[in-house]
């Protein structure tokens, strides 16, 4: 770990001011950033603690929910409105990490946590384009069992590790940010980017931009939603594959759907193709299968992760079938 200084921001303006002009980083719960600093993957000279900023979870006028970026993961998962109206979100959070880590982790930090690719962490012994641009990607021919099957590039095949973000991608969330140019909002699904030629850049945020809140739309049919996570042990493991899904079924037909996949790509993967394939069709197994096949048609496997295509297909079908079962 490199020496660094530490300040605690009192509000967002203070945070931006403290951050400006420094090799600084915002500090949430520190459960990811401090690990990366210990491994010298991250070497900020200054930490601006933003856990004192808004952690309020409030219902907005349109019937949606506004979540302060400093809200702890546990608080969000336990929130009554989240549990009843967005169960996939509560379940996604609870499927992640451990109780202790969720108590520390903030919503803002969860969004910006970095990949768990082993070569990314290994500063001493491995090549990684994400850590050091143009140095190579040791995962391509190495341990890539938990790497991407969708949207990867020859430069990087890493996945985004968050569970919570998969639910947020499905729920049409919006991200509120503040930066040098003032405040703006962007669709959650545009926050993270695919690796392309620049895997060193995870998101579309400008340098120094601060996440202040997440907004959820009302999306009433999300009260029938679920999150299913498949992993190598019962708990405390990242997703090999995960599915967040909500179905609106009217008269046996699917009138609306929200689906996102985790563990498949460099970003939480919104499954637009699967949603389109479901739209207006009967809620039956063959339809679910067709939707899953449509979404995974472009999937490409690496040396050790071929099983993920089948696993994602099966998990998606089963999750949809479960939701439909609950409806009829």
């Amino acid at each position: 770990m490199n020496p660094f200084s530490y300040v605690r921001a009192v509000d967002s303006a203070d945070a931006l001011r403290q951050r400006a002009g420094h090799a600084a980083a915002y500090l949430g719960g520190g459960t990811n950033l401090v690990d990366l600093m210990r491994e010298t993957v991250a070497r900020p000279e200054k930490l601006v603690d933003v856990t004192g900023l808004s952690s309020a979870i409030t219902q907005s006028d349109d019937g949606g929910l506004l979540i302060g970026a400093a809200a702890r993961n546990t608080a969000l998962a336990e929130h009554r409105v989240v549990r009843t109206r967005y169960p996939m979100l509560a379940r996604a959070i609870l499927a992640g990490a451990s109780g202790q880590i969720r108590n520390m982790a903030t919503v803002g930090g969860n969004l910006l946590q970095r990949t768990r690719c082993a070569y990314f962490y290994d500063t001493d012994g491995s090549h990684c384009n994400k850590r050091r641009p143009a140095s190579g990607c040791d995962a391509l021919e190495g341990f890539n069992r938990n790497h991407a099957i969708l949207g990867a590039s020859p430069a990087c095949v890493a996945t985004h590790p968050s569970d919570m973000c998969v639910a947020l991608a499905a729920l049409d969330a919006t991200v509120h940010v503040e930066g040098k140019g003032g405040a703006r909002t962007l669709p959650f699904i545009d926050l993270h980017r695919l690796p392309g030629d620049h895997p060193d850049i995870d998101t579309t945020l400008e340098q120094g931009e601060l996440i202040t809140a997440i907004a959820l739309p009302p999306l009433t049919f999300a009260s029938r939603s679920n999150y299913r996570k498949v992993r190598d042990r019962s708990s405390y493991a990242f997703a090999l594959i995960s599915v967040a899904a909500a179905l609106k079924i009217e008269g046996g037909h699917i009138s609306d759907a929200r689906i996102a996949l985790g563990g498949v790509a460099h970003k939480p993967w919104r499954a637009f193709k699967a949603e389109a394939a479901l739209q207006g069709h009967e809620a039956t197994e063959p339809v679910f299968r067709a939707a899953a096949m449509a979404e995974l048609a472009d999937a490409q496997s690496l040396s050790r992760n071929g099983f993920k295509i089948e696993l994602a297909t099966r998990t998606l079908i089963a999750t949809l079938a479960d939701l439909a079962g609950g409806a009829s």
Partner: peptide
């Protein structure tokens, strides 16, 4: 039986999961 395995990169003999988050041993729920 179900999870323990050192990820030894056969290209350069480097152990790639040197931590308890990536080297899996049973958690309580297992």
């Amino acid at each position: 039986a179900l999870m323990e395995e050192t990820q030894f990169d056969e290209r350069n003999g480097r152990i790639m999961n040197p931590s308890l988050s990536e080297y899996h041993i049973p958690v309580h729920l297992d």
